[in-house]
Measured scan of single mutants.
Amino acid sequence: GSVVKEKKEKALIEVRPYVEYYNELKALVSKISSSVNDLEEAIVVLREEEKKASEPFKTDIRILLDFLES
Rank of each mutant, 00 (worst) to 15 (best):
residue 3 V to G: 12
residue 9 E to T: 05
residue 70 S to L: 10
residue 63 I to W: 04
residue 10 K to Y: 11
residue 40 E to H: 07
residue 30 S to F: 15
residue 46 L to I: 05
residue 10 K to F: 11
residue 63 I to F: 07
residue 21 Y to M: 14
residue 65 L to Q: 00
residue 3 V to P: 10
residue 41 E to G: 07
residue 60 D to C: 14
residue 31 K to T: 08
residue 13 I to A: 13
residue 35 S to I: 12
residue 17 P to Y: 04
residue 44 V to R: 10
residue 14 E to W: 05
residue 17 P to L: 06
residue 8 K to S: 15
residue 21 Y to Q: 09
residue 48 E to D: 08
residue 31 K to D: 07
residue 67 F to T: 04
residue 19 V to E: 04
residue 64 L to D: 00
residue 63 I to G: 01
residue 49 E to Q: 05
residue 17 P to I: 13
residue 53 A to N: 06
residue 29 V to F: 15
residue 28 L to P: 00
residue 56 P to E: 03
residue 15 V to E: 02
residue 34 S to L: 12
residue 35 S to K: 09
residue 17 P to R: 09
residue 16 R to F: 14
residue 51 K to T: 08
residue 9 E to M: 12
residue 8 K to W: 15
residue 36 V to C: 04
residue 30 S to G: 09
residue 44 V to L: 14
residue 42 A to K: 02
residue 30 S to N: 14
residue 54 S to K: 06
residue 48 E to I: 14
residue 68 L to K: 00
residue 22 Y to R: 01
residue 35 S to P: 03
residue 23 N to Q: 13
residue 25 L to S: 00
residue 55 E to A: 10
residue 38 D to G: 07
residue 15 V to D: 03
residue 39 L to R: 03
residue 32 I to G: 03
residue 48 E to V: 12
residue 5 K to N: 13
residue 60 D to A: 12
residue 47 R to K: 10
residue 51 K to I: 10
residue 34 S to P: 05
residue 47 R to G: 06
residue 64 L to K: 00
residue 23 N to K: 08
residue 65 L to T: 13
residue 32 I to D: 02
residue 44 V to Y: 15
residue 26 K to N: 06
residue 38 D to Q: 05
residue 40 E to I: 07
residue 45 V to G: 08
residue 9 E to N: 06
residue 66 D to T: 14
residue 12 L to V: 02
residue 6 E to V: 07
residue 28 L to K: 01
residue 2 S to C: 14
residue 33 S to A: 11
residue 23 N to D: 13
residue 29 V to E: 00
residue 7 K to D: 09
residue 38 D to W: 14
residue 6 E to F: 08
residue 46 L to T: 01
residue 30 S to M: 15
residue 61 I to W: 01
residue 1 G to V: 11
residue 41 E to F: 05
residue 16 R to E: 14
residue 70 S to V: 10
residue 66 D to R: 15
residue 19 V to M: 02
residue 57 F to L: 02
residue 70 S to G: 11
residue 43 I to Y: 08
residue 37 N to C: 06
residue 7 K to W: 15
residue 67 F to K: 06
residue 21 Y to P: 01
residue 23 N to M: 13
residue 7 K to R: 11
residue 1 G to Y: 00
residue 70 S to N: 11
residue 28 L to C: 01
residue 47 R to Q: 07
residue 22 Y to K: 01
residue 12 L to C: 06
residue 2 S to W: 01
residue 69 E to G: 12
residue 26 K to T: 09
residue 40 E to F: 09
residue 6 E to D: 14
residue 9 E to Y: 13
residue 9 E to R: 06
residue 16 R to W: 14
residue 65 L to M: 06
residue 70 S to A: 10
residue 61 I to L: 04
residue 22 Y to M: 03
residue 12 L to E: 01
residue 18 Y to E: 09
residue 52 K to C: 07
residue 11 A to H: 03
residue 23 N to Y: 13
residue 3 V to Y: 02
residue 7 K to E: 11
residue 53 A to G: 02
residue 59 T to Y: 13
residue 50 E to L: 09
residue 57 F to G: 01
residue 15 V to I: 12
residue 53 A to L: 03
residue 27 A to N: 06
residue 8 K to T: 15
residue 57 F to D: 00
residue 45 V to K: 12
residue 65 L to G: 04
residue 56 P to K: 04
residue 41 E to P: 03
residue 36 V to P: 03
residue 52 K to D: 05
residue 33 S to L: 14
residue 12 L to M: 04
residue 38 D to A: 07
residue 27 A to T: 08
residue 56 P to M: 04
residue 17 P to N: 08
residue 19 V to I: 11
residue 29 V to H: 02
residue 30 S to I: 12
residue 35 S to F: 14
residue 55 E to N: 08
residue 51 K to F: 11
residue 61 I to V: 04
residue 43 I to G: 02
residue 51 K to N: 10
residue 21 Y to E: 04
residue 46 L to N: 00
residue 69 E to A: 11
residue 55 E to C: 12
residue 53 A to C: 04
residue 30 S to W: 15
residue 21 Y to L: 12
residue 34 S to K: 08
residue 59 T to V: 04
residue 60 D to L: 15
residue 7 K to F: 15
residue 18 Y to T: 09
residue 47 R to W: 13
residue 22 Y to F: 12
residue 48 E to P: 00
residue 45 V to E: 11
residue 63 I to A: 02
residue 32 I to C: 14
residue 23 N to V: 12
residue 17 P to T: 03
residue 11 A to S: 03
residue 43 I to E: 02
residue 51 K to Q: 10
residue 51 K to G: 10
residue 70 S to E: 10
residue 60 D to M: 15
residue 19 V to D: 05
residue 14 E to A: 15
residue 29 V to C: 12
residue 60 D to I: 14
residue 45 V to W: 15
residue 50 E to F: 13
residue 25 L to C: 02
residue 51 K to C: 10
residue 44 V to I: 09
residue 52 K to Q: 09
residue 37 N to M: 08
residue 15 V to M: 02
residue 53 A to P: 00
residue 4 V to D: 12
residue 57 F to W: 10
residue 34 S to H: 07
residue 56 P to F: 04
residue 47 R to H: 10
residue 20 E to K: 15
residue 27 A to H: 05
residue 37 N to E: 07
residue 3 V to S: 13
residue 34 S to Q: 12
residue 52 K to I: 07
residue 54 S to M: 09
residue 40 E to S: 09
residue 20 E to Q: 15
residue 58 K to L: 02
residue 43 I to N: 02
residue 62 R to F: 05
residue 53 A to M: 04
residue 54 S to R: 10
residue 31 K to R: 13
residue 44 V to K: 09
residue 30 S to L: 15
residue 5 K to M: 13
residue 45 V to Q: 12
residue 27 A to V: 06
residue 13 I to H: 08
residue 62 R to T: 04
residue 18 Y to W: 05
residue 55 E to I: 12
residue 56 P to A: 04
residue 64 L to S: 00
residue 1 G to W: 00
residue 63 I to P: 00
residue 68 L to M: 08
residue 24 E to L: 14
residue 30 S to A: 11
residue 38 D to V: 06
residue 41 E to T: 07
residue 49 E to G: 02
residue 15 V to H: 01
residue 5 K to W: 13
residue 60 D to E: 02
residue 60 D to W: 15
residue 33 S to W: 15
residue 38 D to N: 11
residue 25 L to T: 00
residue 56 P to I: 03
residue 34 S to Y: 13
residue 41 E to M: 08
residue 4 V to P: 06
residue 68 L to W: 05
residue 46 L to M: 06
residue 61 I to K: 00
residue 37 N to L: 07
residue 17 P to G: 10
residue 18 Y to F: 13
residue 2 S to K: 06
residue 14 E to V: 09
residue 51 K to D: 10
residue 68 L to C: 13
residue 24 E to T: 08
residue 28 L to I: 03
residue 42 A to W: 13
residue 36 V to M: 04
residue 9 E to D: 10
residue 56 P to T: 05
residue 20 E to I: 15
residue 70 S to D: 10
residue 36 V to N: 05
residue 1 G to P: 11
residue 2 S to E: 09
residue 24 E to R: 14
residue 39 L to K: 02
residue 8 K to A: 15
residue 5 K to T: 11
residue 37 N to D: 09
residue 42 A to S: 06
residue 6 E to T: 08
residue 18 Y to L: 14
residue 34 S to D: 13
residue 14 E to D: 06
residue 35 S to M: 12
residue 58 K to Q: 04
residue 38 D to T: 13
residue 34 S to W: 14
residue 40 E to C: 06
residue 5 K to D: 14
residue 37 N to H: 10
residue 64 L to N: 00
residue 21 Y to I: 02
residue 50 E to D: 02
residue 3 V to C: 15
residue 18 Y to H: 13
residue 13 I to T: 08
residue 19 V to C: 08
residue 70 S to Q: 09
residue 37 N to Q: 10
residue 70 S to M: 11
residue 22 Y to W: 14
residue 32 I to H: 03
residue 1 G to E: 10
residue 55 E to T: 06
residue 36 V to R: 03
residue 12 L to G: 01
residue 24 E to H: 07
residue 70 S to T: 10
residue 65 L to R: 05
residue 65 L to A: 09
residue 11 A to R: 02
residue 2 S to G: 08
residue 69 E to F: 12
residue 39 L to I: 09
residue 69 E to V: 09
residue 66 D to M: 15
residue 65 L to D: 00
residue 57 F to R: 01
residue 50 E to Q: 11
residue 2 S to I: 07
residue 34 S to T: 09
residue 70 S to C: 10
residue 3 V to A: 11
residue 16 R to T: 04
residue 3 V to L: 11
residue 53 A to S: 07
residue 8 K to L: 15
residue 61 I to N: 00
residue 57 F to A: 01
residue 45 V to R: 13
residue 58 K to E: 00
residue 12 L to S: 01
residue 43 I to H: 02
